[in-house]
Design a protein around this nucleic acid. Structure first.
Lengths: 252, 252
DNA sequence: CCTAAAAAGTTGCGTTTGAAATTTAAATAT
DNA sequence: ATATTTAAATTTCAAACGCAACTTTTTAGG
């Protein structure tokens, strides 16, 4: 990794931990000039990850979603790029909420043409609305304020109007017994509703999730076609998934 | 109007016109210290109307919606407060997109309890998501990026699941011949779809709209129950509306 | 009308900022 | 390997900043 990227990663880590870092401090602890730190922070702000203020920076808005974007940003970015390679110009696809999915949406928006994205996440709709190449269908439903997604019976009725080839989701955990798991009941149910309308479900997730199990059932293994993750996935998990006929795409 | 409010109004006007104003300039042309101007700008930023930067300020994000919020902010705020008086705690209502409607939603969110807002505007959903007292139903549909609203057949199917007492909308123009008019075909159609599901339609609009006519039909006069506007509404329009059985609520 | 309290505005000072010019380091081609 | 180009980091300085202490103006009650 390049020097600058490392510094950016370090800054984001510090920020995730301490919520606030100031320029003077960063400059000293990272051994570069204040001007350099300012440029770093400006770049990170341009990416929408942090907010610059006079003398310091904070994570973007204490917002749940933005914090999750900043956390392990570089890895998630790579996962998004890898997943994006599956997508053709002109395709219509579904994306669920989640930080990796948001980055995927952004990657699609900046590299593909005439793609239609169907999503239950108004965060994602907002996140990529500046890119004219992409058409967005926003599903309706009960609005979950923290996650900025819609869920519930209306969302199911909305999504039933569509049928697509690929559906991209995140996950909060995995085990052989449970399959993929989530942490929110309503959101997980909505994911299952959406999955019914897609030929292939692609899970995009950091490998760390393979060492965790979520609170509620999300999707059984046999409904997933492909997993995009990083190379730290436990060998055991990878073998098991492959054995179940799932393509495991590793990055980095 | 108080001195400070007048300065704020002036700043917003300048900003709407010039897109960018700097502290030094404002300080001179308004005859107050730079510190005072900075405090003004900080306040306006806290309201989400502008964005502060080093040495100057701009309108919030060149974003269509935010610009419209800043334009005639004080009047719109009053209209919102007046419209909010019609609403009871615990009520379920529908709100369409539009700057006055966004301010109404905020007013509801800060003064009412247990209100459910059904809307096709993800801007509004996002705008008030920090307030826990309010439940939001976000309708689905084709996403219009600039306006941050959903429209189209899916929106109609979504809204058909509800029936409410009051539906609040804005307008882009009015005349005796045309009734209320809009500037966007799809959005206007969606408003009509939503209006079918409400007993009373309330139009919230600056009086200046009574001197304009929009591009497309929005709603005929006989489908509107009430108009909330400011006291600059032409007497002729007011009389006509009253004669048609519409309650005209004037503020200020 | 007057007085007390709150709000609005100013002054002064040490710190942080953006911008431009310059040096250093890294990538790419020869 | 070495030259060429490009990107990254530093230095410098006037302008802008936040903060806190102070003064003026509004507001509201006796």
């Amino acid at each position: 990794m390049k020097k600058m990227e490392m510094r950016h990663t370090k800054i984001l880590e510090l920020l995730t931990e301490k919520k606030k870092v100031d320029v003077t401090e960063l400059s000293q602890s990272l051994g570069v000039s204040q001007v350099t730190i300012r440029k770093d922070l400006d770049l990170l702000e341009k990416k929408g990850l942090i907010i610059r203020e006079h003398g310091f920076a904070t994570l973007n808005g204490e917002d749940d979603m933005n914090n999750r974007l900043a956390y392990h940003y570089e890895v998630k970015q790579k996962l998004a790029k890898a997943a994006c390679a599956f997508i053709e110009d002109g395709e219509t696809l579904m994306i669920e909420s989640g930080s990796c999915c948001a980055l995927l949406a952004q990657e699609i928006a900046t590299t593909k043409k005439d793609v239609t994205i169907i999503t239950n996440s108004s965060f994602i709709a907002d996140y990529i609305r500046q890119f004219p190449q992409i058409k967005i269908i926003l599903l309706g439903g009960e609005y979950q304020k923290e996650a900025q997604v819609v869920v519930g019976p209306m969302t199911r009725r909305c999504v039933e109007a569509f049928f697509v080839d690929k559906f991209f989701i995140g996950t909060d955990g995995f085990s052989k017994n449970t399959g993929f798991t989530g942490n929110d009941y309503m959101r997980s149910e909505t994911v299952r509703d959406m999955a019914k309308q897609a030929t292939h479900v692609v899970v995009i997730t950091e490998s760390s999730k393979f060492q965790q199990v979520g609170l509620v059932n999300l999707l059984p293994t046999n409904q997933v076609s492909c997993v995009v993750t990083d190379d730290q996935i436990p060998a055991e998990s990878e073998e098991y998934l492959t054995l179940q006929g799932i393509t495991v795409q590793k990055v980095k």
